[in-house]
């Protein structure tokens, strides 16, 4: 299965938030206590990740992160 918030594959227990396999989102999308981060926090994190690792323009990074999250079950309630 994949993280319902960002799409990352969840293969090992450590991939899951706080190592808890019943959690359907990944460690990057969770606070240290295992709570799912807010939409804005995940969006900011993903945007920063795209800039830091691929050098994307800030606007492109933010649009890409928004488009990715729009397809994720955890954020499907949002327009």
């Amino acid at each position: 299965m994949n993280c319902t918030s960002c799409g990352m594959p969840l293969r090992t227990p450590e991939d899951h938030a706080s190592g808890d396999v019943t959690k359907e989102y990944c460690r990057h999308c969770a606070h240290p206590d295992g709570q799912l981060k807010s939409y804005d926090e995940v969006l900011a994190g993903m945007t920063a990740f795209l800039q830091r690792t691929q050098g994307l323009d800030p606007g492109v990074a933010r649009r890409t992160a928004t488009a990715t999250m729009a397809k994720m079950p955890a954020w499907s309630g949002r327009a």
Binding site: G7, M8, F49, L50, R52, T53, Q54, T64, A67, T68, K71
Partner: peptide, 17 residues
């Protein structure tokens, strides 16, 4: 296609980083 492609690159970038 863009989104699918950036998706691939993000996964690759994640592991490389």
């Amino acid at each position: 296609f863009d989104a699918e492609w950036v998706g691939v690159q993000s996964a690759v970038a994640h592991h490389i980083a």
